[in-house]
């Protein structure tokens, strides 16, 4: 493999990886607020892409309007999910809560299939089919959109958590919800906020990636899993670690394809899960987390 090829795979890997990173961040936000691993996370991504398709491609809305509306719509779905399915069960065992997120994911996936049909829908790239050439490495302009919006979202989120009262209240809930409640923070409202935020981030991921991957109702499970691999690599609960973890998964996956012998490209999706299992076996607290396992 030549250097140019290697760089090409790296660029693709970082781009796909930053989408995984956004999904991973979405997982982390809900996990920190509730202790739930939300299996409907991938459906937020898918719905983001599909709603964006309807607004941008079918309804010819301007790019920014379609993007904002699609993100808002999915955030609303997140809020509804919390209000209708999580809040009534919030005192149930965690396994029940996890299964209800599985149920919601199935429901959303089925609804998406009914509304948008089983076919994958093409979305044109935001800035046309142009590529930027850095030396001999081609960087599709859509990749720049993905990277730019990811960076913007991560930085924006950092500022939100560190410098706004709502962000700090959400962090307080994540650290200790009882203490937060005693300090006068409405924990249930923060949990709702975390679902909205998490859904919005995942929707954004779905929107920026759909010109590259097509928008399809059944891509959610795979994306969610790769995002989850990212959270595990970063250490469950560690936001920045999750984004890094997602990027690492993306890079490993693309390099894996690059180095794999001919005819083995079909295995690319298995790659992330082998990494996930290895992480769970060897270092379940993540690359950036502290070791905290329970003895057998």
């Amino acid at each position: 493999m030549s250097l140019a090829e290697l760089l090409q795979y790296l660029v693709t890997g970082v781009t796909v990886g930053s989408v995984y990173g956004l999904v991973a961040l979405g997982f982390t936000i809900i996990y920190n607020a509730t202790g739930i691993i939300n299996f409907a996370q991938g459906e937020f991504v898918v719905l983001g892409g599909l709603i964006f398709y309807s607004l941008y491609v079918a309804a010819h809305l301007p790019l920014v309007a379609a993007l904002v509306l699609a993100v808002a719509a999915v955030a609303l779905i997140g809020v509804l999910m919390e209000r209708l399915t999580i809040r009534p069960l919030i005192n149930s065992p965690v396994v029940t809560l996890i299964i209800i997120t599985v149920g919601v994911s199935v429901l959303l996936r089925g609804a998406a299939k009914l509304i948008w049909g089983p076919e994958a829908l093409p979305v044109p790239p935001f800035s046309g089919e142009h590529s930027l050439f850095v030396g001999s490495v081609a960087v599709h302009l859509q990749y720049l959109w993905v990277l730019g919006l990811t960076v913007l979202a991560v930085v924006g989120l950092r500022l939100f958590f560190d410098h706004t009262i709502v962000g700090k209240a959400m962090q307080a809930c994540a650290i200790n919800s009882e203490a937060a409640q005693l300090a006068g923070i409405s924990v249930s409202r923060m949990v709702q906020g975390s679902f909205a935020l998490s859904a919005a981030l995942s929707a954004l991921a779905g929107i920026v990636i759909c010109p590259i991957t097509l928008a399809s109702y059944d891509g959610g499970a795979l994306l969610a899993l790769k995002g989850f691999c990212g959270t595990i690599i970063g250490g469950l609960g560690n936001g920045l670690g999750a984004v890094m973890g997602g990027v690492i998964i993306g890079i490993l996956e693309k390099l894996g394809i690059g180095f794999a012998p001919q005819g083995y490209a079909g295995y690319q999706d298995a790659f992330a899960f082998v990494v996930l299992l290895l992480m769970l076996f060897i270092r379940p607290s993540g690359l950036f987390g502290r070791q905290r396992t329970e003895g057998i």
């Binding site: 299996f39 996890i98 079909g266 298995a270 996930l276 299992l277 769970l280 379940p284 329970e294 057998i296």
Partner: peptide, 24 residues
Amino acid sequence: VPTLKLHGHYLAMATLGIGIIVRI
């Protein structure tokens, strides 16, 4: 053995991963 030793629900994700690997 490794996933059930952990506190929480890592088994769910690990089995989901195994499901996808096996399918592939």
